[in-house]
């Protein structure tokens, strides 16, 4: 983590302590995926993990008057989030495993999860916005399935179990959605993006 990032975080944190709601949302936007993917590593229940993240930020907002200056906002957020995730019922379930696993990680520091590195930020804003619009326009069921499949990376079996739909339905709906996305996505911006990438790859191939 770069020092500028830490600095930005600390500024954000200070604004939060002063009651700036936007600062809370900025922190949320900044750390949502960090927390989500760390959480999902241990608890394969996205509803639950998302809920705990919400609780965490609600807590920050409610307690903003009593919070102290944080040295490292990122690790504070991650550690307190994991504590929250372990407490209550999760704790009952797997106290030992989780706590041991996490205390180890606390010492090592939290690396950025692979999933997080996959997320393209800013650069492709236009393409991403476009895709998002397509995704948001999907029927609710298809949107949900696409999220489970390509975002949470669940297997077809796991999705079947989670949704109670048949294997065939899950498969069909996901493919339908994928086709829709594909159709609307054959757009110049993306094609050129892929082309340039492909060219780059070919170029690098020749290099070796």
């Amino acid at each position: 983590m770069t020092t500028t990032a830490i600095h930005t975080d600390n500024l954000c944190w200070e604004r939060l302590l002063q009651g700036d709601k936007e600062a809370l949302y900025e922190l949320y936007t900044q750390y949502y995926h960090t927390l989500l993917f760390i959480g999902l590593k241990n608890i394969h229940d996205s509803d639950l993990v998302k809920d705990v993240i919400q609780q965490q930020f609600l807590y920050l907002w409610e307690k903003r008057h009593t919070l102290r200056a944080a040295k490292n906002v990122r690790s504070y957020l991650i550690i307190s989030f994991l504590r929250r995730l372990t407490s209550d019922w999760v704790k009952a379930r797997r106290t030992v495993n989780l706590e041991v696993a996490w205390s180890k990680k606390e010492e090592e520091g939290f690396e950025t999860s692979w999933e997080e590195t996959l997320i393209i930020k800013d650069d492709h804003e236009a393409v991403s916005k476009n895709l998002m619009a397509v995704i948001n326009a999907l029927p609710a069921r298809q949107r949900e399935l696409i999220l489970l499949k390509f975002y949470e990376g669940l297997s077809y079996d796991a999705i079947t179990q989670r949704t109670g739909l048949t294997h065939r339905t899950v498969y069909n709906k996901i493919h339908e959605a994928l086709d829709k996305i594909k159709q609307r996505l054959v757009q110049p911006a993306m094609v050129s993006g892929i082309q340039s990438l492909v060219l780059l790859c070919i170029a690098s191939c020749f290099h070796f």
Partner: peptide
């Protein structure tokens, strides 16, 4: 490579869509 890149785009878009949902909820 093309598929990986396309997957990244899809993944990113889904991630942003999810974040937007959740942020709205939080607000």
């Amino acid at each position: 490579e093309e598929a990986v890149q396309e997957y990244r785009l899809l993944f990113s878009a889904l991630a942003h869509a999810d974040l937007e949902d959740q942020l709205m909820e939080l607000k």
